[in-house]
């Protein structure tokens, strides 16, 4: 019987369509995604002093540091938003972006042992990383909520608006950007490993050219164009825009940023799809 005359469940070929994502298979492996998330959450704080409390300690300490450095020393304005809220929001949104990007960038190299021994839809791993970071973000938002509420009740009623309902959209958009960039980096790091080390360094530099601990409006007009070229700027501004009803948000900057994030995600997925099939020969 001829090869093509038969009904195969799986066909392994040398060439693959770069856009072939077997969504059905990923859904079939949803239990695995759940277990990966559970593993990563559980492992992170096993045999530690404070355990999952770290999810809360991190943003609190960073906020306090920002208050001291940027508010009291550098004296940078916060567009009339209570500084505590401003830094807290900046910290959690940037932490989500940065951690997600870093972890996605490590997806291939960190899992090479498993990938080299068993087949399962590889996309389950980046998806589970995304879910894990999302859960951490939600925990931090839950902590943020009472502080936010307290400021609204005590003298800042105007910061809340109907736009808050857009928060999930902003989070999803941040996720798309970070996953896209992360997957692109991960495809490069399997060849050039020094990039993994360089990444955390560049990310910390990147934070300072992104309006995280200062608003875009504080940047002088001459330089603002460079900040607007940074697609992450609009994300951070939008995050504050929905939370505090302030920020420099224009249709142009938003559509530019959304466009970038979609390009990054597409490129990231295509690269990942291509690399997952042969990277084990390279690494």
């Amino acid at each position: 019987m001829n090869f093509d005359d038969q009904k195969w469940d799986t066909v392994i070929k040398a060439k693959h369509d770069p856009f072939s994502f077997d969504i059905r298979q990923i859904i079939e492996y949803r239990d695995l995604i759940f277990l990966f998330v559970k593993r990563d959450m559980a492992i992170a704080y096993k045999q530690t002093l404070l355990g999952p409390l770290w999810y809360l300690i991190q943003p609190i300490c960073t906020t306090i540091m920002c208050l001291i450095v940027f508010q009291n020393v550098a004296n940078i304005g916060t567009e009339g938003i209570p500084p505590v809220l401003f830094y807290f929001a900046g910290t959690i949104s940037w932490t989500f972006f940065g951690n997600l990007l870093t972890n996605e960038a490590r997806v291939l190299s960190a899992n090479k042992e498993i990938f080299g021994k068993v087949y399962f839809p590889r996309l389950t791993v980046p998806i589970s990383v995304f879910c894990g970071e999302l859960i951490k973000l939600i925990i931090q938002l839950v902590l943020f909520a009472p502080i936010y509420a307290r400021y609204i009740i005590n003298g800042h009623p105007n910061i809340i608006s109907i736009k808050l309902l857009l928060l999930p959209v902003i989070i999803l958009w941040t996720g798309i950007m970070a996953v896209g960039l992360g997957l692109i980096v991960s495809s490069i790091t399997i060849r050039y490993r020094d990039l993994t080390k360089a990444l955390s360094y560049f990310l910390s530099l990147f934070m300072y050219v992104t309006p995280v601990v200062y608003p875009l409006s504080e940047v002088s007009e001459n330089y603002r164009i460079f900040f607007k070229l940074n697609p992450v700027s609009a994300l951070m501004e939008c995050f504050r825009w929905v939370c505090f009803h302030t920020g420099t948000v224009s249709l142009r900057s938003v559509s530019y940023s959304i466009g970038c994030s979609i390009v990054f995600l597409t490129a990231g997925l295509i690269l990942f799809n291509r690399n997952e099939k042969t990277f084990i020969d390279v690494i």
Binding site: F3, Q6, W8, D9, T10, V11, I12, K13, A14, H16, F115, G116, K117, V118, Y119, K277, T278, I280, D281
Partner: peptide, 11 residues
């Protein structure tokens, strides 16, 4: 786990 350079397999 890795892709063949040429040929195909049906399972």
């Amino acid at each position: 786990i890795t892709m063949p350079t040429k040929g195909r397999i049906g399972i």
